[in-house]
Design a protein around this nucleic acid. Sequence first.
DNA 1: TGTACTTATTAACTTAAGTTAAAGCCGTTT
DNA 2: AAACGGCTTTAACTTAAGTTAATAAGTACA
Lengths: 237, 237
Amino acid sequence: MCPVRQLNIFKQLPSELVNAIENYRTEQITLPAKTFLYKQGEEHTNTYTLFSGWVMLYKTLDNGSRQILRYALPGDFLSFQADLNSPINHSAQALTECSFCVFPRQSILQMFDQHPELASQIAWITARDMSLSHEYLVNIGRKNAKERMAYLFLDLYHRLCTQMEHQEQTIPFPMTQEDIADTIGLTLVHVNRTLRSLREEGLIRLAHHRLTILDYPTLAELAGFTRPADSQPQPLL
Amino acid sequence: MCPVRQLNIFKQLPSELVNAIENYRTEQITLPAKTFLYKQGEEHTNTYTLFSGWVMLYKTLDNGSRQILRYALPGDFLSFQADLNSPINHSAQALTECSFCVFPRQSILQMFDQHPELASQIAWITARDMSLSHEYLVNIGRKNAKERMAYLFLDLYHRLCTQMEHQEQTIPFPMTQEDIADTIGLTLVHVNRTLRSLREEGLIRLAHHRLTILDYPTLAELAGFTRPADSQPQPLL
DNA sequence: TGTACTTATTAACTTAAGTTAAAGCCGTTT
DNA sequence: AAACGGCTTTAACTTAAGTTAATAAGTACA
């Protein structure tokens, strides 16, 4: 049984409701790093919540290039899309070993039926993801290489800290420089150059898949990063 | 009373439900072109559905630049954000004269209470907007100027056609070249150059705020545009 | 019907980021 | 510990897009 209680999606629900949900059959699965949870173009019948590990979500273009849409962290809700009957429009690939709770469409349908509060939680979560997606639009559309990278680092740093009560300046960083490039709309080579420059200015340290924020204020100023309001799920309206 | 029945958000609801909703007090307002529905940083207590006209939604950066997030077309749902208690994180400005249905937070709260199906409609709509936002991330992050512009034109063309049973190759185009620039992450001057090039290749005509698609297949190929599945609201799960 | 303002157009020049290519590094496997 | 593969780093060169600036064309309204 999946430890449902700690997931974002269920965090603010009254506990008798959570108990009810735990009684639905939900499967828990584990994936090794680099494997796919699902691939763009597949039919999908499940939705997932990420329980542990990092997942990257991306779209692939006809010309073979890739745009990473989002890094999913523990608690995030995956594979929810407007048209559940169409093939899924992006891929989800594990960056580290990951575990998920699986909700077959049928279970969700039943849960919605019996506990309509859930739908408003889903709306809430989708709206929060939307807001993140808008931030990244601004980031890619209107900032230069250093600013984009600083923003990416701070966003991940913050999302991880709020998720995990994690309070160091160092976070795990499982992505490669190519992943960074495909996230912020640059090339691998330019990411490397920019990284060097941030390093030489003493703003960050990034090595062996660990990122350290050395000068938070300067980095935040550079990124145009304003600490997001601490966003716990809450009654929608 | 707002002609609620035709709005996206209510389209698939059973008609006795729509009747119930029409009984809530909803105000209808009209705004002239170039005025604001709301501005980034304001507290907001209403949500809106756009009934007629075009609205642009954008974020403003500290350095004064602007990233347009989305053009809202008739039927779209506005000002819904994850944290309804925080100041709104973007601005909404009318591009043409617009009319809206206003739903005070209190009305929505009541409606949700009595008709939980509404929440899943909201989730559906938010997920659809999310998908559009992802498309634009790909567009800005991984395409060159001509491709981005071709994509923007085709997206608007399609969204307008599905909305309005509009079946010409010419659509109204109320934005300036500066607006285009702030949508696809380019400068005004480069937009003008790119526009000329598309015009010289006989792909489009754009003048006096009207856009004509002259060579759809070539434009679609260039943009990497695949016609989105006709996305009518539908039962969520 | 002219004046004022906003939008569009073009040219000349600069620069940030892309491309290609070659080494070097690191972790894993045998 | 050698050999392999995937990452990272750097350099040299190219180019797409940015900048600045000047002119022209629309549009609104007094």
